[in-house]
Computed example of a mutant assay.
Amino acid sequence: MDLLALADFNLVARHGGFGRAARAAGRPKATLSRRVSELEAALDLRLFERGGRTLTLTEEGRALHARTGVLLAELDETAAAIASGSATPRGRLRISAPLLFSQVAMGKLAAAFAMTHPEVRLEVTTEDRAVDMVEEGYDLAIRVDPEADASLVGRIVLRDHLVVVASPNLARPTGDRPVPAVVRGSGGGDAWSMRTPGGPSPLAFEPVLRLSSLIMVRDAIRAGIGAGRLPISLVSRDLAAGTLVRWGDIDGPDIALWALYPSRRLLSARVAAFLDHLKRAFPHGTPEELAAYVGPESEV
């Protein structure tokens, strides 16, 4: 594939037309049109739908632009950095992060990063779904216990574990009576597996509230309507203050928060800078570090 023709195609796709692309790049419009036509012929694909006054990407054109536009930009950035002898992070950095981490920490993290790296245009999108990083143009994704994916590499940023907590005013039921519980979402079963010296022990519960956010779950537990299962980092200050009490630990592996990026992509200076930023914020990756980083804001 002709990389120069591919670069011209992305230039036209980015500006939405041959004329606008030609003016932006100072190139002849006829040259850009010819190079895109040659690329279409080489690929045996139509990349643009050409109307009287409109130019729109075809489905194949959108896919090609999504997969190659960022790669070409990173190649340009790498070449410029080598030529100038500088690896200063610059350019657009798109990050997808989960809801809870975004609510309690991402605003502070993003602001500190932006002040340290003013030439990076940071964009953070909050969503819990597993985004397609290449297709959707993300440079970095932060995910909780992600499924194995051969196309992605990454590192663990934080570890956390789940505990069952309740208001000190809520009496723990005796015998086999289920605990009134506040749970997240529609699933969750009917018993928590608790860690005890003798091994796992079930704690039966009956949902009295189902909420979509762990922040809401914590606030409802504080109000005393039921017990709940939450990350220790989210409730450590409540436990220290006595506004919540700890009924026990959930049996099972720790929660791991990963930072992921596409393995087929060069690790750009801006992605490496943000990974270093996370490492400085959470050098050991413990729940206590996250709770300390969040500070009093976790009380809201």
Score class of each variant (00 low, 15 high):
194 M>P: 10
98 P>T: 01
213 S>K: 03
185 G>T: 04
202 P>K: 01
6 L>C: 04
263 S>Q: 13
250 I>Q: 13
145 D>E: 11
282 F>A: 01
122 L>M: 11
222 R>W: 14
218 R>D: 00
231 P>A: 04
20 R>I: 07
129 R>I: 10
135 E>P: 11
79 A>G: 04
44 D>L: 12
195 R>T: 10
216 M>L: 13
1 M>E: 08
295 G>Q: 00
252 G>C: 04
141 A>P: 02
71 L>G: 02
259 A>E: 05
77 E>Y: 03
46 R>A: 13
105 A>L: 03
103 Q>C: 13
189 G>F: 10
94 R>T: 13
297 E>C: 07
90 R>N: 06
67 R>P: 03
85 G>D: 13
31 T>K: 14
127 E>D: 14
274 F>V: 06
283 P>C: 02
207 P>E: 04
66 A>I: 02
271 V>W: 07
14 R>D: 12
154 G>P: 00
241 A>M: 07
30 A>L: 12
228 G>T: 02
63 A>Y: 01
137 G>H: 03
53 R>E: 15
225 I>R: 07
23 R>D: 15
236 S>V: 08
59 E>A: 14
76 D>S: 10
79 A>L: 15
292 A>K: 00
29 K>A: 14
184 R>H: 11
207 P>V: 05
216 M>C: 08
231 P>Q: 01
233 S>T: 11
226 G>N: 04
282 F>L: 05
207 P>N: 05
38 E>S: 14
13 A>Y: 03
34 R>L: 13
169 N>K: 12
69 G>I: 04
154 G>C: 09
186 S>E: 14
207 P>L: 04
57 L>R: 03
162 L>D: 14
88 T>D: 12
260 L>S: 01
251 D>L: 06
261 Y>K: 00
108 K>G: 09
118 P>F: 06
126 T>E: 13
261 Y>E: 15
249 D>F: 00
197 P>S: 01
133 M>S: 06
170 L>R: 05
178 P>R: 00
151 S>M: 09
229 R>V: 15
201 S>N: 10
50 R>Q: 15
136 E>Y: 10
161 H>K: 05
222 R>P: 12
103 Q>W: 12
286 T>W: 02
172 R>A: 11
143 R>M: 05
282 F>W: 03
243 T>S: 14
